[in-house]
Design a protein around this nucleic acid. Structure first.
Length: 666
DNA sequence: AAGGAGGGTTTTTTT
DNA sequence: AACCCTCCTT
């Protein structure tokens, strides 16, 4: 959407606020809960409120607004700028919890015994740490994998439970081993000067709790705090908020319990349900006027969500009337599903000239978009896969980032292990094992042991020579980067040359096509770095790494924004939250997919309820046209299996009665 | 130490 | 079907 359209719509909306919305906007002090259904303009209300505060004379930088994603933060900032123009003298602080916490921690984390130059570990790196932590523990034949332990550990962290306090929560083998792993894991992280995503919140909470002066400093920075998507707050986040507003209670939160879809990540709906208890005297404003969807779509959404128990009863009131029924279509298999939907989009786009950006295809799992991508590419339609961090997940990028991390922070053991023999330089497993054993026995890090080990002489000559030149290489680049941070891209380009990374690619990929694609990735990566070096006020490698950790492929989005504006969007239901599209295809409504098999197996009504909310989120993304589809059979793990229509279809439509094409076996 | 073959396993969702 | 891990050969 262009700015002019955008502004016009905003101004219209502002002029037509209903009394409930007005009261949300004009209640400027004390706690406020805005309970708002889908498509009622939640985020806009919070933006207007901020604008109102600034108009009343509150300095923009004394308002903290927390959004759920970095993208939402950017959008909110743009709207504020559009509404206030030159009246906006300072920048309001709009960020996610995680970005906010990184800022806090960069200042004070040393009080907790971590280095200020900590690195942030993502999922893959966490798993390596967990794997080493696991190795020290005798797992026996329990068949547990790092992933299981990590998610248990993550749950504890999101409830603010530290390693020393896990004893109360042990109920089974998984808990027991996870508790052990948690301690080892946390030790390893700290030794590597690393922090994981949950730590960002957990450590900030710890900091606030243990150091009242630090808390006081941050409390006095803000007169007002606003939180968007409050239904997704976890325990640790709640404590952070509560601590920040403890003195003035100027807190405004916005959310919808029917859209709580992050329970698996620790989000706790009770925070929004008990807001009035946690913050006495809170005003509660309800928004039920839906401006997004047609009456037909709202009807389906209301019916569906009414099957959930224990929620704030809300009935969305549609403001758009349409003759277009919600379509529920079935196809033989997942290939036909993709083909047919893409064929329809192709027709509508090319013949009816409906812009590509009007379309969105929403799905439950990440294996689903593949086929749609293939079909869209065949039809030469512009599309964008939203949300997947595929770019920074590529092997090449991860390798080079690991180099960069070691340059910045030599104690980062996970990254060091990743690059020590990448590309192969004759430092094989047995050598690495010896080094690690020595590091453990001397109680120091792998990095520190390398010069010693070279002297000790129980390694073969080739390995020693390689180690020496590897060590020298790291020192050289780390020195160079710290002295000329603006040269980030050039530096990495030289590195690629020096370690012959390109020839490594040639070796690994046989076809010229693939080789080209891989080199292309490297170029994009270097571009992203030089772009960063220009954009940032004070570029530094560690700041660049923060940027990537928190924003993913953010740097590309600027370039792609115009392109993305005119593309068909493909995304999971989770990343579709907060967005809206004129034409939505909600695909794969089958038992086992939506609701997901894992929730079905859990045999737990709350798990199914969350799946239902997910479907509800999908339905309510559609502005004008909604098509729901399913396949009668689907490939899974190389096998074709029959699919049963999702139970949600029966709930959405009273008259839903499909003809089943497969035979029922008894 | 490196590369390749064979076997076993897998996927929910993401800041 | 695709990926990862382990083991085997060179």
């Amino acid at each position: 959407m262009h700015f002019s359209d955008f502004d016009r719509r905003l101004m219209d909306r502002l002029a037509s606020l209903n009394p409930a919305q007005q009261s949300a906007v004009t209640t400027l002090s004390g706690p406020v809960l805005v309970l708002a259904g889908a498509g009622t303009g939640k985020t806009r209300v919070i933006t207007y409120r901020m604008v109102e505060l600034i108009k009343q004379g509150i300095a923009p930088d004394r308002i903290l607004s927390v959004t759920f994603t970095n993208k939402a933060a950017r959008e909110m900032l743009n709207r504020t700028k559009a509404l206030l123009g030159s009246r906006l003298k300072k920048k309001p602080l709009i960020s996610t919890f995680h970005s906010f916490c990184v800022r806090v921690l960069r200042q004070d984390i040393d009080s907790l015994g971590y280095p200020k130059a900590f690195t942030i570990y993502d999922r893959g790196e966490q798993e390596s740490v967990a794997r080493t932590a696991l190795r020290d523990i005798r797992v026996g034949d329990k068949g547990l994998r790092p992933g299981d332990l990590l998610s248990r550990i993550s749950q504890w962290k999101m409830h603010g439970i530290l390693p020393d306090f896990t004893a109360d929560y042990i109920e089974n083998d998984l808990d027991f081993i996870s508790a052990l792993a948690y301690r080892k894991y946390q030790q390893k992280l700290r030794a590597s000067g690393a922090v994981d995503f949950d730590d960002l919140l957990l450590l900030t909470g710890q900091l606030f709790e243990q150091f009242p002066d630090v808390l006081a400093r941050h409390q006095s920075r803000f007169d007002h705090v606003q939180i968007d998507e409050y239904q997704d707050t976890n325990g640790t986040q709640f404590h952070l908020i509560e601590a920040l507003v403890r003195k003035h209670q100027n807190l405004c939160v916005v959310g919808d319990d029917d859209q709580s879809i992050y329970g698996w990540r620790g989000a706790d709906v009770t925070h929004i349900l008990n807001f009035g208890v946690s913050f006495p005297g809170a005003k509660i404003v309800r928004l039920e006027d839906n401006y997004r969807c047609t009456d037909k779509i709202i009807d389906v959404a209301n019916r569906l969500v009414s099957f959930n128990k224990g929620r704030h009863e809300k009935v969305l009131i549609p403001h758009k009337i349409s003759d277009d029924e919600v379509r529920i279509e079935d196809f033989d298999d997942e290939v036909t599903e993709a083909e047919s939907i893409v064929r329809e989009i192709n027709y509508l786009h090319r013949t009816q000239e409906i812009p590509a950006s009007n379309f969105a295809i929403l799905f439950r799992t990440n294996e689903q978009p593949r086929l749609f991508e293939t079909e869209l590419r065949k039809a030469k339609l512009p599309y964008q896969l939203v949300g997947s961090q595929s770019f920074f997940d590529r092997k090449e990028i991860r390798d080079l980032l690991a180099y960069l991390k070691v340059f910045v922070h030599p104690t980062d053991e996970v990254s060091l292990l990743r690059i020590i023999n990448t590309p192969a330089r004759g430092i094989g497993n047995s050598t690495v094992e010896k080094l690690l054993a020595r590091a453990v026995s001397q109680g120091t890090s792998l990095w520190n042991i390398i010069p010693d080990a070279v002297r000790a002489g129980d390694l073969n000559a080739k390995a020693v020579a390689s180690l020496e030149s590897f060590h020298a290489l790291l020192k050289r680049y780390s020195y160079r980067l710290s002295h000329s941070p603006r040269q980030l891209a050039e530096c990495m380009r030289d590195l690629i040359g020096e370690i012959h990374y390109e020839s490594e690619i040639q070796k690994q990929y046989k076809s010229a096509d693939q080789q080209l694609a891989r080199s292309d990735i490297l170029d994009q990566f270097l571009d992203s770095m030089s772009e960063y070096a220009q954009r940032a006020e004070q570029p530094s490698p560690s700041d660049y790494l923060d940027d990537i950790a928190l924003n993913g492929r953010d740097d590309e989005s600027d370039k792609e924004d115009q392109l993305a504006e005119d593309a068909i969007k493909l995304m999971t239901l989770h990343s579709a939250k907060g967005l809206e599209f004129p034409r939505v295809y909600l695909v794969g409504l089958e038992e086992g997919l939506l609701p997901h098999q894992r929730s079905v197996d859990a045999d737990d009504e709350t798990a199914i309820a969350e799946e239902r909310r997910l479907a509800y989120v999908g339905v309510t993304r559609a502005e004008d046209h909604l098509t729901i589809s399913r396949a009668n059979s689907r490939m899974k793990w190389g096998r074709r299996r029959p699919s049963i229509p999702s139970r949600f279809l029966f709930e959405m439509r009273e008259d839903f009665c499909p003809e089943l094409e497969f035979e029922i076996e008894f």
